[in-house]
Nucleic acid binder design. Structure first.
Lengths: 147, 147
DNA sequence: ATAACTGCAAAAGTTTTGCAATCGG
DNA sequence: CCGATTGCAAAACTTTTGCAGTTAT
C-alpha cells in the first residue's frame, strides 16, 4: 500500500497534514468538486484555505493520485485514481452513476483503428437521462438542462 | 426552411438583430465558446454586449436551435443543432474532431437495456489523445492536461 | 538552514443580475 | 402603447497569483 508520504517524497514534495486531509476527503466523497472537498476538509480542520485545496488537487493529479472528470456542468469533480469507471450523468436530476469502462472497449477499439484516437474513458461523463427521469419526461424535450 | 423569426414568434419571443447575429455566428463557427461567439458578433456589430450573447445562447438553446457541449475543459461550446455528432477532444493539443453518433449506438443500446439510461451522445465529448499527440507522447503520462 | 508549503488578500476570469432606456409587434 | 429585449454597471462565483510567514526535511 503506497502511502501518500512516499509518493510525495519520490518526487521531491513534502508531506503535510493538509495534503492528507484533501486526499482523504477525495477518497471519502467519491466524486466531488473542489468546493465540496474544501468543505469536507474544513469540517476537520477549519483553518485550511480553499487555495490550498486547489493547489493540492492539482499536485495530487500530477502525481496520478487523483483525477478529475468533467461531469457536464461547470465544475470538475475529483476522485481517487483507483476504481476506473465511466460516469453517466443525468442532465435532468444530476444523478451520477458509474459503469465499468468495459462498456466503451469496443468504441475505444474503433476509435483507435479508424481515427488513431486513444480514448480516455474515465475523463468525461456520458450525458443523458437516467431511468427515473427518462420515464417522467418522455414527452418533454431535453433542452432545459444543466449549467 | 425554418426561420429564426418564426421559431421565436411561435413561442412568444421577439426577433432582434442581435439574435440573428448570434445564431449566424454559432452556425459559422461550428463549436465555439460564448466569448468566441461574442467576438464574432462584435466584429459585425461592436455594440452588442456579451450579456446579450449569454442570454441569447440560453434562449436559443431552450428553443432547440443550438445546443452546448462540454468539451472537457472549462468552457462550454455552442453549435447549431443540426448536424449531430460525437466530439473527440484531445486533452493534449485541444483538437476537436467529430465522428458520427452511430459510433455510440451499441453503447446507447446497452445503457438503455442494462441501466435504463438514455444516452445523449452529442452533449459531451470523449476525451483522449489524438493520433498526432498519441504518437509523440507515447511514454509521457497523460496527467498534465486540460482545464 | 532552506526550500517547500500555507494562508491571506487581492486579482483575474467567467457568468449572472438589476435597472433604465429602447425597440418590436 | 406595452411588454420583451438590450446595454451598462455591478454583483456573484470560481480559480489563480503574489507574498510574507511557517513548516517539513
Amino acid at each position: 500500500m503506497e502511502t501518500l508520504r512516499r509518493t510525495l517524497h519520490e518526487r521531491g514534495f513534502r508531506m503535510t497534514p493538509q495534503r492528507q486531509l484533501v486526499l482523504d476527503a477525495v477518497q471519502r466523497l467519491g466524486h466531488a468538486t473542489p468546493e465540496q472537498i474544501c468543505g469536507a476538509v474544513q469540517r476537520q480542520a477549519p483553518a485550511v484555505n480553499i487555495t490550498t485545496v486547489y493547489r493540492t488537487l492539482d499536485l495530487l493529479e500530477r502525481l496520478g493520485v487523483v483525477r478529475h472528470t468533467h461531469l457536464g456542468h461547470g465544475a470538475p469533480t475529483y476522485s481517487a485514481h483507483e476504481h476506473e469507471h465511466v460516469h453517466l450523468v443525468c442532465h435532468r436530476c444530476g444523478e451520477v452513476a458509474e459503469v465499468p469502462t468495459e462498456l466503451l472497449d469496443d468504441v475505444a477499439r474503433r476509435l483507435r483503428a479508424e481515427y488513431g484516437f486513444r480514448l480516455d474513458a474515465t475523463h468525461v461523463a456520458l450525458s443523458g437521462a437516467c431511468s427515473n427521469c427518462a420515464d417522467e419526461a418522455d414527452a418533454t424535450d431535453a433542452t432545459e438542462e444543466d449549467r
